[in-house]
Write a protein that binds this DNA or RNA. Sequence first.
DNA 1: CTGGATCAGATTATACATTATCTGGAATAG
DNA 2: CTATTCCAGATAATGTATAATCTGATCCAG
Lengths: 233, 233
Amino acid sequence: MTDFKAQPPAGMEPTGASTQGDSLYELIRDDIISGRLQANERLVVADLAKRHNTSTNPVREALQLLRGEGFVVISPNRGARVRPIDQNFVRDIYEIGVLIEPALTRWFVGMATPEDIVQLEQVQAQIEENNFADAIRHSELDTRFHTIMYERHYNRHAAELWWRHREVLRAVSRRYNFTLARRAQVMREHRQLIQFIKEGEAEKAALLVAQHVEGSGRHVLEQMRAAEAARAG
Amino acid sequence: MTDFKAQPPAGMEPTGASTQGDSLYELIRDDIISGRLQANERLVVADLAKRHNTSTNPVREALQLLRGEGFVVISPNRGARVRPIDQNFVRDIYEIGVLIEPALTRWFVGMATPEDIVQLEQVQAQIEENNFADAIRHSELDTRFHTIMYERHYNRHAAELWWRHREVLRAVSRRYNFTLARRAQVMREHRQLIQFIKEGEAEKAALLVAQHVEGSGRHVLEQMRAAEAARAG
DNA sequence: CTGGATCAGATTATACATTATCTGGAATAG
DNA sequence: CTATTCCAGATAATGTATAATCTGATCCAG
């Protein structure tokens, strides 16, 4: 088995600057995503510093990073709060994905080499082999699949935007499971996508990706809705 | 004459957190855009603090903000550098605009009220009246024109993304002038856009906006190219 | 209800410890 | 002799600690 840790496209970690800042960023982000930090909960710099055994400087940096990705809302002189990871948040993000990914895909179709195809097929094979048994692994592989396509895009801004959003969605969807229907759909779409790429069908591939992202977003939203209903009912 | 200062869509200043941080952000950003700071020039925290009469903390924050918007590149343990505002940078940004603005427009067409139309026409009248005489004023009005359309979009992420990019392009294009051809084109497209909105022609409006943004980006790029050629030759 | 006291906590200011990177030149291999 | 390696110092980022200010929010007396 090869490694399957999802790597960000070359040269674009969320790296703000510092080391601690980065790890703090991850820690706090996980706390937010996992729900250990309530929606709208206040993030007091001093407390965070104490809790994570650092000084306030790295904390502030981490909060800035988190703000940049929308996990935290900061108001001047009033500090930071946990942004509710609600349906609107997720919808906003994946809607932007629906706009951007097709464009990235279109370009990729025109640039794909036989080696790229091989890579895609390899990853897809691993996805099928795993067949959603290991959710984390699936997530990594699926991300890798798309990364292969977008990684070399000339528009670094767009690629980075994609990656950041991807990370958010991945983090959120970790909380849920794939329905059987969605599993089948994902497989189908990936296979079809590879086919289109082989045939150089840029437009069809772009359209398919739009659907793929749309479907993925919709799926997560429905899970969130269901979870919320369960909580309420 | 009414005021015409371009306002960000409700509730989305670049406000990272602090007051000084924000103003520093603006000062440094202007230095970068205006070229007072060379491309790739190193931004030494201590120096900036001294130059702006503050301590290092606000400077660090400002740099983070600037990084978030792409004006500055930070590498761990090596500090910040001015990101070259080159053609690639501009292209990346406006290409994303081409993807996002049509979607925002499409939605607006379905939501526009008679009051919105009136507002658009008023702003357009001011644009025509000014007729590019005052470049800054044109920029403000043009921004306002688009802000009216995107301001109330439910996807705050997308709207914010638009606004940030808008600010960048506006800042960059301040350095150049509109060609006569471009002026005519802008007027034409705005008028046509209003027309489409009135008729509820969402698709046509979206397409037009795509062209509008594309043309605007292309125009700036050509100006940059020309300026560079002039510098070189 | 209004103006002021009070408090929590953000923001800013300093000073310093620690650490990573860079630089010029000596030492060394080839 | 030239090129690479290595190393001491300089430079500046990053992190820690503390204190001074400033803001916004809350509480209370009038």
